[in-house]
């Protein structure tokens, strides 16, 4: 597999949210607006990229039996970095995302890529894989956040489209499940007919 494929597979063919159905908790939890979804996606991208790079560099030194705890420590370190940097420079977004920032540690996508890809491949391939997967995840979160914000608040990225009330349900928790369900159904339909 060449580098371009390593990078691009995360967007469509192996998209973490729409195809692999990983990382559902942050996907549903933070996408009440497009900007929150994007912020969460980019935070996860950073953790994925850095942990993939570090894990592919140290893979030769870690005994096989303790590799999972070792991976978790590496991932948790980068999550702490994101948490502190965000609290310092983007306090408003940090407040909105709240609990879901430390929970990037248990996001199955990050550990999944570490175990399935970075522990078997070189640095450049792993970095591209992490970046592609992360940006694919960010794209999915941004799409879901946009749909919910447009339907729920009739606005996008905080800019009001029509001066009226939206369907409040889509901002509330049930809207997350419904919007994602119909979005995945739509993607399945397009894939089958295309």
């Amino acid at each position: 597999m060449n580098n371009m494929q390593n990078f691009s597979k995360g967007f469509f063919k192996e998209n973490a949210v729409f195809v692999q159905l990983l990382g559902m908790c942050p996907t549903l939890g933070v996408t009440s607006t497009a900007i929150n979804g994007l912020g969460m996606g980019l935070a996860t991208t950073f953790v994925l990229l850095m942990s993939n790079i570090v894990i592919s560099l140290v893979k030769g030194f870690i005994p096989d039996k303790v590799r999972i705890p070792a991976f978790i420590v590496i991932i948790a370190s980068f999550v702490t970095v994101v948490d502190l940097v965000m609290a310092g420079y983007l306090p408003a977004l940090h407040e909105q995302l709240g609990l879901f920032i430390p929970l990037i540690v248990v996001n199955c996508i990050v550990l999944g890529r570490a175990e399935a890809f970075a522990s078997k491949n070189g640095v450049i391939a792993s970095a591209l894989d992490g970046l592609g997967m992360g940006l694919g995840f960010a794209m999915a979160l941004f799409m879901l956040g946009s749909v919910r914000e447009i339907l729920g608040n009739l606005s996008i990225l905080g800019i009001k489209l029509v001066d009226a009330d939206g369907i409040l349900l889509f901002i509330l928790p049930p809207g997350a499940f419904l919007a994602l369900g119909f979005l995945i159904a739509f993607i399945n339909h397009v894939k089958k007919t295309a």
Binding site: P173, P174, F177, L178, G181, I184, A185, N188
Partner: peptide, 21 residues
Amino acid sequence: KGMKGVPASLVIAGLLSMAFM
């Protein structure tokens, strides 16, 4: 066809979440 599996589960979860509201 497109709704089968996960999408349908998500919609059910949405309705359940609505009930809990």
